[in-house]
Structures are given as structure tokens and as C-alpha cells.
Design a protein around this nucleic acid. Structure first.
Lengths: 239, 239
DNA sequence: ATATATTTGTGCGTATGTATC
DNA sequence: CGATACATACGCACAAATATA
């Protein structure tokens, strides 16, 4: 087995044994390198992998720390971000990053049951727990079906953290309630943009959830593609 | 932005544009390094990230290849591995890696509603699609509740690919049908053992599903912890 | 079948950049 | 401002798996 794997395993043991406690700081790169008698790169590879496993978190200029527990995100047909965070004793907040109206690409048009090229409003927003970003959502609304959607989003300040109720916003469109129809879940490393917005390392994986939300009468309301930081959440499905 | 990120983005573009087609081989490390005018390590970092994003797959001694589509795995309360693979036009097979009986650790005992230390049978098995490993499952059965479980597993050859019907095996225990009660889904990098069994790179993420299966009368049947290779599957949830 | 070349994987050494303290 | 600590990049060498002559 590779040297960095052995170092990784050793550090995992020390974390599990409680020698390193959640929130605690690990020794620095160079110190670990001398301790294990290897080059600093080798230690860094081990730490990088531990970070991808969601066990530690490295912060430039500060150090590497053992991570706390992830948020248990209950995922049903009618669960909401805010309630989930409150259940986990976290303070939820949302932050609109941008809204833009443009012609729908075929993949999104297909989901929304509109013609390709029909105008859609795409809103990018961040979901945060105690100020730490948890997910990056890109929501796509069919503008011709919901003409008020632009005005509804225009009222929300861009770039600053705020209390947004998605269900209230949808209510303004004349939709009483909505629910998930299908969800597609992938697991992959983030691209540069996602990693930047989510303040996460490139080697830390994300969940990608693609969800079509429909009304009681099965009309598509919006199509959302959301990336969740893998080390900060885990999903719970009940039956 | 880092140099390796730019190279990664460039290669993503070329894949999306179709310059590099699924199944096709990318130029080697050194060739890409000279092309981009960087060190081989820098190219390797870009390729490593693309692999974690599920876009390419590197094989030692052979090269780096653009990957084909992932398996769309339909995930309900009563879905089975075999049927899912057949729906995706893949040939399913299973491989028992090991079975062992030992005292249940508290976490598993809690799920199975047995006393910690009570004997459990843990079976490790691989699920394969067209001979390629897709998931590594570790199933935990309470032995005192199902005394026949050892004999049932003893009939299955170890280490070789075979057609195993999990529902048939459970039927031998005297259980007519079972269903998921809860599922917990995580997303992380694999440990060394998982990566080896699943024949995947260490920087390629996995889904980890922890599932408690119960009988019609809500009695715990078995508790399973399954790691799915993230680049080879995606989950579909219907409502 | 054997040897050789190719290609990816790992590790060491060095240097520099960047954020934090 | 300097010291500290993580992040990126280059260069060299060798190992391991595969392909090829």
C-alpha cells in the first residue's frame, strides 16, 4: 500500500480513538512530515484524502481541523431547508447570488414542459447553516407560465444573507403548494465555481440533486439543480 | 485561478464539444504537459480532478479514457439490484467476498434491536455490472433471530461471481417479504479497501447508503451499509 | 515467452504564492 | 510587519501495470 494511505489510516485511527477530537487542530504539515519521516507532499496527500472523506478540514493560514458532525437532512416529498436546519439546531439563511432570464436549453425545457428557447428565470442561491454554505441551488422557472416570477425575485436583495421562504415566493406566483416529482442524485467532485461559492476544497465531493417540482395538478413549477457540500450534510430517507 | 483548474476546464470543454468522445483515449500525461507548457504533475492534478468528476477514467499502463454513461439506479422501497441493471441493459452479477460471525458493535445492535455483543453475521459482497464492480455491500444479520442465516450463506460460493437472489436468501430465513425502513445517504471519498474492491481511484467519490430493512411486522431483518462507486451510478427517486 | 517501451502512480526535494495570526 | 501554515508548481527518479516488438 502507498505510504500516504498508511498515514491516512493512522490519522483516521487517532481521530476515531479520540486522540484528535472534533474541532481540534492537527499538527502542521511539516511537523507530521518529520513525525512520519516522509516528505511534506506525502503528508499533504494523506490530509487531502481525509478532507475528501469528510473527516478533517484544512484552512489556509490556520491549520487542519477535525470536523464536527454533518447535518442530517431529511429528504421527503415535502421537506424544507429551513425546518431541516432548525431540527439540527442550526441557523438557516439564504443568499441570492444572481437572477437571469434567458432562453431555455433543451434539457431544462424538457423538464419544464416548455419549448426550447422559451424564456426561463434562473436564480442561483446559497443555503447556509450558521453562516457556513451548505448548498448551491440553481432554480429554473418558466417565465411565460409564471409572469410574476421576475417581480417576486426582484424584491429579494442580491448578495446578502436574508430570510427567504421559497414556499412564500412560490405562493406569490399563484401556486398554493408544490411537491417533488422526481429527484436524480449524483455524487462527484465540484467544479471550480461550486467549490468557490461553497467554500470547500476541490477534492471534497458534492451531492448533486436534480429535482422537478410540480403543482397539485402535476404542472411543472420549477426545475432545480442543487449541489450540497458532501462533508456538511447527509440525507435521511424515511418510508 | 490555479493552472490545473484551467487545464481541467479546457479538457471539460473538449469533452463536451465532442472533440474527445466517450470511450476515446486522451493524450498521455507527458504529451498534455508539453501541450499546455506545464509540469506533468500539473496535468495529472487536472486529470485526477476530472476523474473525480466522473468524466474520465485513468488506467495504469493503458491511458486515460472518457467515461460512458452511469447506471440510472431507481431507488424505492422495493427495488432490486438485478432489475435495475437489466433496465439499464447491463448484466448483473454478485460476488460474496466473506462472511463472518461476531459480536455486534453498539451501532449495529441498535439498528437491529438486539443487545450489543449478540452474534451477527456480516456478509461482504460485490455487485457488478457487466463484470465491473458497482457497489460493495456489507450486510449485517442478527444470528439469534435467524439461526438459518449461516447455512443459507454457506451454500453460496465465496470469491466467485454468481447469481444470487437476495430475496430468495431472505425467504430461506422464514421471511416472506421485507422493505426499507430508513436510508441514510452520505457522499465521501473511499477508503483504501473500498477503492481496491471497487477498482476505483482514491479521488473518485462514493455514495454510502446505510439501510435498515424490516419485515411486514416491522421487525429488523438486516442492516446494510453499501458503498456505490459514484461515477458508475446515479440514483433516481420517484414520488 | 521475453525483453523493451509506454503510461500512469508514487515519492522526494525545492521554490514560491497566499491567507491567517 | 514578520512568522506561520496551507496551496500550487516545477523537476527528478523510480515503481507498477500494460502494450508491443
Amino acid at each position: 500500500m502507498a505510504i500516504w494511505q498508511n498515514i491516512s489510516d493512522t490519522l483516521v485511527e487517532e481521530i476515531e480513538k479520540g486522540i484528535l477530537t472534533p474541532g481540534g487542530r492537527l499538527p502542521g504539515d511539516v511537523e507530521l512530515a518529520t513525525r512520519f519521516g516522509v516528505n511534506r507532499h506525502t503528508v499533504r496527500r494523506a490530509l487531502s484524502h481525509l478532507q475528501g472523506q469528510g473527516l478533517v478540514r484544512s484552512e489556509r493560514g490556520r491549520g487542519t481541523f477535525v470536523v464536527e458532525d454533518a447535518i442530517a437532512y431529511r429528504f421527503g416529498s415535502q421537506t424544507y431547508f429551513e425546518q431541516n436546519l432548525l431540527d439540527n439546531m442550526r441557523v438557516p439563511s439564504r443568499r441570492i447570488l444572481s437572477t437571469i432570464i434567458y432562453g431555455a436549453p433543451t434539457a431544462i425545457a424538457l423538464q419544464l414542459q416548455i419549448k426550447a428557447g422559451s424564456p426561463i428565470l434562473t436564480a442561483a442561491m446559497l443555503g447556509e447553516a450558521d453562516g457556513i454554505p451548505v448548498h448551491l441551488a440553481r432554480l429554473h422557472f418558466p417565465v411565460e407560465r409564471f409572469p410574476k416570477v421576475e417581480a417576486a425575485f426582484a424584491r429579494i436583495p442580491v448578495g446578502q444573507s436574508s430570510q427567504i421562504s421559497l414556499s412564500e415566493l412560490i405562493g406569490e406566483l399563484g401556486v398554493k403548494s408544490f411537491r417533488r416529482k422526481t429527484a436524480r442524485i449524483k455524487c462527484r467532485l465540484p467544479d471550480a465555481e461550486e467549490a468557490r461559492y461553497l467554500k470547500m476544497a476541490a477534492q471534497d465531493p458534492v451531492f448533486q440533486l436534480e429535482i422537478l417540482n410540480i403543482s397539485d395538478s402535476d404542472m411543472p413549477i420549477f426545475y432545480g439543480v442543487t449541489s450540497y457540500c458532501g462533508s456538511r450534510v447527509e440525507f435521511i430517507l424515511d418510508y
